[in-house]
Design a protein around this nucleic acid. Structure first.
Lengths: 219, 219
DNA sequence: CACGATAATGGCACTTGGTGCCGAAAGGAA
DNA sequence: TTCCTTTCGGCACCAAGTGCCATTATCGTG
């Protein structure tokens, strides 16, 4: 797939050659608006390309697939998380660090909440996106696994780093689903609850689902 | 999708009308053999249909998608697991019951290990199947979530049942990946280790990855 | 034995996502 | 202007999947 290497970057204008007609961000805007209006599956790539004033072929130069549009610049998010983990002081217990990271990297700018909600709604509910998400989650898990591996002194592909990464992802996704179901819920609190329960082997799960129980067990 | 409702069943022969030319099981055999020979992506639905001596259109009456073939009769497996949970005595602690279930329902007949390995290899490594798996896992999680919900006295779609179901799935998948990487590994042991660690909030994860540590913490 | 109800088959056309190819357009530099 | 570089986007093509519908096989009945 030579497609993935030569995507135009929205960065500093290249010195030479024809200038890009659009950008990933702009395409994302256009696409998301269409998705919101008629739904994800009801919007074809032709629709998006037409609305953006580019050719269908060009669309696929900016995004490898229709699915990818919904994820925006996920890679940048991951880069931040990676950096956070790298700078995480060793005094913080591992599971606590994981909880904090998950909560921190899902804090939302109030003004972008509606878009993020739409995004997550589609990712978690449209089958095609639901399926595709696995591939994106893999990158997320890798970041977590590397951190855990460092703490445990094991390779990142060993059982525990992988299991923990999967479990964290699960807790996060479950929280998101809850958040989408109850639009009055606080995402941060849900994430805190889920990650905290995870860190305790779900032993406190018998407690009623009241407000944050034992959210800072070790720190 | 009216397609999903009227698939021929391999059960007792229907009294009237033309008889099915093949069966899900037979198609599965044919397809898996082709997948093993040339790979999943290199095998088209036309190839499978031709090899099975049926029309391409007919293939889609037996399986809703090419992806589905790999999963065989997953629904039956789930039905068994549901039944097991339903008959699980309340004395067994929840997390212990989950561990046992995961281990029990992944015990393999030695003679079908190679096929199962191929299956899982594809599911966990071929991107298209990796993505598709999410949709099948959802059913698996639902079974777990219902059991957990019963134990916790919460709705199945509440945060904890969902988070626990996701976490269990994660532990299981991580174990499978490990099993595939090291063909000398014992799947049951890996599952035991991962589920046990999960039940302890991964506190013992600092132990070296030696032979099953604390595999039967509560029973 | 023909007849009619029933159910599976499979061809055909069509939609959609995605890719390889390649010439055309656009812009900076010499 | 000319050359070089980069993006654009049309075209042809492939594969998955679906709706439609005529065809075929099978059973029960008159």
């Amino acid at each position: 797939m030579p497609e993935t290497t030569d995507r135009p970057s929205a960065a500093r204008a290249p010195r030479v050659g024809r200038r890009p007609r659009t950008s990933r961000a702009e395409l994302e805007q256009v696409a998301l608006r269409l998705f919101a209006e008629r739904g994800f599956e009801e919007t074809t790539v032709d629709d998006i390309a037409a609305a953006a004033g580019i050719g269908r072929r060009t669309f696929f130069r900016y995004y490898g697939s229709k699915n990818d549009v919904v994820w925006g610049d996920f890679e940048r998010e991951l880069e931040h998380m990676r950096a956070w983990f790298a700078g995480c002081p060793p005094e913080i217990p591992m599971m606590d660090a994981l909880r904090r990271a998950v909560v921190a990297f899902n804090r939302l700018d109030p003004d972008q909440v509606p878009w993020h909600r739409l995004r997550m709604m589609m990712i978690l509910q449209v089958p095609a996106l639901q399926a595709h998400s696995t591939l994106r989650y893999a990158d997320w898990r890798a970041v977590v696994a590397v951190f855990v591996a460092g703490r445990l002194g094991q390779p990142a592909d060993a059982l525990m780093p992988q299991a923990i990464a999967y479990a964290c992802l699960g807790a996060a996704v479950a929280s998101y689903e809850q958040w989408l179901r109850h639009d009055d819920a606080d995402l941060g609190e849900l994430l805190n609850r889920a990650m905290s329960a995870l860190a305790h082997g779900f032993q406190g799960a018998l407690d009623p689902p009241g407000p944050v129980s034992g959210q800072t067990p070790t720190g």
